[in-house]
């Protein structure tokens, strides 16, 4: 066992410090040390996207990031998507469109879709499918997920239009 390392991060807009071994993935650190178990592990090798978090300004599969690499960085997990008790439009759209069945891939899809909507506020179906191809879902056949992302985009755009 190597010496543990103190890591200072910002997680979901709160300063968080944790102590981890260098071999521990960011996913392990989030789940087992920080206690944020909303981020899921489906494969451990970056191919299912269930462990997607936002690290800095990019989404990553947290199973392929070392916890120590997160030092000084800000991280957003599914626990940080809602504003208090108000669900993020994507969370709301996933519920209203029945875009989840078992729900294990949902946190990863939500974080990935949030990043998509920041890059493409009104993505096409093709853009959505391409962006989300790193997130596997085995229950839905993706149909309702794609619809939910499009519905959330509409809602966000409508609201931002109304605010102007």
């Amino acid at each position: 066992m190597s010496a543990k390392v103190q890591v200072q991060t910002t997680i979901n807009n709160e300063p968080v410090e944790f102590l981890c071994e260098p071999r521990q993935s960011l996913l392990e650190c989030l789940r087992d040390i920080v206690g944020l178990t909303g981020t899921k592990e489906g494969c451990g090798d970056g191919n299912c996207g269930s462990c997607t978090v936002k690290l800095g300004d990019r989404i990553v599969t947290s199973c392929l990031v070392l916890g120590v690499e997160a030092a000084g960085q800000s991280i957003t997990t599914v626990e940080g998507l809602a504003h208090g008790n108000t669900l993020h439009p994507l969370q709301k759209a996933f519920l209203e469109n029945a875009a989840l069945q078992c729900g294990i891939c949902t946190p990863g899809f939500l974080i990935a879709a949030d990043a998509l909507l920041q890059k493409h506020p009104q993505p096409t179906e093709e853009q959505t499918r391409f962006w989300l191809a790193n997130n596997l879902c085995r229950c839905t056949g993706y149909d309702k997920i794609i619809r939910a992302v499009q519905a959330a985009a509409h809602e966000i755009n409508a609201n931002s239009g109304a605010a102007q």
Binding site: G35, L36, G38, T39, L87, L95, E96, A98, L100
Partner: peptide
């Protein structure tokens, strides 16, 4: 009809506890 599922909010916020989440 198509109501929102009862476990939905837990599952979109990361609160739902799956087996590996148990501590």
């Amino acid at each position: 009809t198509r109501p929102v599922r009862h476990d939905g909010a837990d599952k979109v916020t990361g609160r739902a506890l799956y087996g590996a989440d148990l501590q």
